[in-house]
Design a protein around this nucleic acid. Structure first.
Lengths: 270, 270
DNA sequence: CCCTGAGTTCCAATATTCGGAACTGGGTTT
DNA sequence: AAACCCAGTTCCGAATATTGGAACTCAGGG
C-alpha cells in the first residue's frame, strides 16, 4: 500500500518522513512515527526538527505532536496554478457541471494514484481545497481507469504495480488481470465507467484528457448515484465530456507552449 | 523581500530551491534558477534532480523547465485539513458571507506573511484552491494587521522585520513605526481596518481569532469596495465578525484538544 | 525511591554532499 | 566551415553533513 519510494539522498528521506506525517490524518507523536519509519530515534528526531524549523511541519509543544505545516499550502498553491490542469480546465468544468447538473471531477495521475485537482458539486456549489489535493485509488474509479487505459505500455505496467486492489464493493475489480481486460474495453469504447466499484450506489462516467500525441494529461468525470441516474444515462453524456476533454487538452497545450502556434504558423507560411 | 531562511542542512537547502521554483509563477529554466540561488551549478542540478525524482518538482524535458509538482497538492491537502483553521471555521465562514453578502476571508500567519486558507465570495460563490494557499503582505491588509497586533512582543518584532513596506497605494503604511502605532490602535479598538492600503478602492474590516490565552490563531475579514460600502458600514459589522472569530477559536481549541474537556470535567467532579 | 519510557543530546565513524573542472551538443558568430 | 558560446550534464577527490549507538533528562508510575 505504501508506495516504496527509492528515497534518494537525505532529501528523499526527509520527504518520506513528511509523507508519513501527512498520512496520519491527525497530529502525531514522535513515537508513533518512530515505529513506522525505520529510522533510528536520533535520525528521525533530527529530520522532524529540520522539517519543523522549515515550516513544512508544525509542532505543538503542548501535546508533543507533529502535523503538516502551512508552508505546504503556499507551495501547493503554486503547483496547482502552474502544474495542474485546473486553471485551464476551470471554465469547462464550470460549464459541464451547470449543463449536466451533477458532480464533475477533474483528476490527474500522481504515482499511480488519482489526484483530484478540481471539482464542481452541482448540489452544494462550493468547490473546495478539501477536494483539490484529495487522493483516491485508480483501479476502481472512473477517472483512474480512464487514465490508466491510455498510458503507454511501460507507464501502465508501473502504475498497475502500484494498485492495491482492495475490494471496496462486490463490483471492485479484484486483480491486475481483470483490470487489464477492463482497460482494453475502455480503449475500445473511449470512455470509462465506474459501476459502484469504489462506493456502493455511486456510479460515474469518465473520459481521459489526451494530448494530440496521445499522452495522458488527466481525466474528467460525471458522478451520480444509482438512485438518481442509470449508467446508460451517464454513458449518454460521454460526447459532452469528450468535447470538454478535447477543449481542455487543446488549451493546455496552447498554454504550456505559448509560442508553438507562432512557430507552426511560420512553418505553414514558409 | 525574499525571506532569509537559515537553511539548516541539506534538506533546508533543497526546500529553499523548491521555494525558489514556486516563487516564479511559471515554468522556469535551470539557468534562471542558477543565478538567483547562490548554489554552484552542479549542486543546484543535483537538487533539482532529487526534487524532481521525488515528485515535488515536475520537469518538462520538451522545454527544459521545472515547475512545482503535484505531490505538493497531496501534502497540502493534509496540511489544510489538519493544521489550518479552515475545517473548523468553514460553517462560520459560510454563514458570515451569507449574512453579510460580501467576500469573507480566513487567514493565518506564515513567516510574517498572510496566508489565505479559505474564502467565500458572495458574488461568485466558488471558493477555490486558487485562493487557499495564496499569500499576501501582512502590513497592509486587514487580516494581516489584525494578527500582527495581537502577537506577543518577540513574535511581533520578528514579524515586523519581515515586512517589505512596499507602498502599494498612497494609504499604505510606510514603515515599521507607523505600523506599530496602527497596531496599538487596533489593540485598543479590537479590530483592524484596511483603508485602501493594499489596493485602491478595496476596504476591509478584520478581527483576529485568539485563543482564550490570547495567542493568535488567525483572522477573519469582510472585504468590500468603496463603491459599495463605507468604512463605517464595515466597522459596524465588527460585532458579527467578533462572534464568528470567538466561535472559531472555541471550536479550534476543542478540536485540537479533544479530551481536555473530559479532563476538566473530571477535575471539576473530583 | 527506583523504575520505565518518551523525548532529547552527544560525538566519533562514515556515507553524502559539495563544487571546481571538464565534457557534450546545439546554436550562433566569425 | 571552423571557432565560439552557452546551457545543461557528468565526474571525482575533498570537505562536510549525516548517522545512529549510547548516554542523559525528565515525568509519571509502581
Amino acid at each position: 500500500m505504501t508506495a516504496q519510494r527509492p528515497a534518494d539522498g537525505t532529501v528523499g528521506k526527509a520527504l518520506q518522513v513528511l509523507d508519513q506525517v501527512a498520512a496520519f490524518g491527525r497530529p502525531v507523536r514522535f513515537s508513533e512515527l518512530l515505529s513506522g519509519s525505520g529510522f533510528p530515534k536520533a535520525t528521525l528526531y533530527r529530520f522532524l526538527q529540520t522539517l519543523t524549523s522549515q515550516g513544512v511541519l508544525s509542532y505543538e509543544p503542548e501535546r508533543q505532536t507533529y502535523a503538516p505545516g502551512l508552508r505546504l499550502l503556499r507551495l501547493a498553491h503554486a503547483a496547482w496554478r502552474q502544474s495542474s490542469l485546473a486553471p485551464v480546465a476551470r471554465p469547462h468544468i464550470d460549464r459541464l457541471s451547470a449543463e449536466i447538473g451533477e458532480t464533475v471531477h477533474l483528476a490527474q495521475l500522481d504515482n499511480g494514484q488519482v489526484l483530484y485537482v478540481d471539482k464542481r458539486n452541482a448540489a452544494a456549489p462550493i468547490a473546495m481545497y478539501s477536494e483539490a489535493g484529495k487522493v483516491g485509488p485508480a483501479y476502481c474509479t472512473g477517472v483512474g481507469k480512464a487514465m490508466l487505459a491510455f498510458l503507454d505500455g511501460a507507464e501502465r505496467a508501473r502504475a498497475l504495480d502500484q494498485q492495491a486492489f482492495h475490494r471496496f464493493t462486490p463490483a471492485t475489480l479484484p486483480d491486475a488481470a481483470a483490470l487489464e481486460r477492463e482497460l482494453t474495453a475502455i480503449r475500445a469504447r473511449g470512455h470509462a465507467l465506474d459501476r459502484e466499484e469504489h462506493e456502493p450506489g455511486i456510479i460515474c462516467a469518465a473520459l481521459p484528457i489526451l494530448t494530440p500525441g496521445g499522452r495522458v494529461l488527466g481525466a474528467v468525470s460525471v458522478t451520480s448515484s444509482t438512485a438518481r441516474r442509470g449508467l446508460e444515462e451517464l454513458e449518454r453524456l460521454a460526447p459532452v465530456l469528450r468535447r470538454a476533454a478535447e477543449a481542455i487538452a487543446a488549451e493546455a497545450e496552447a498554454w504550456r507552449f505559448p509560442d508553438d502556434d507562432d512557430a507552426m504558423r511560420e512553418a505553414g507560411a514558409a
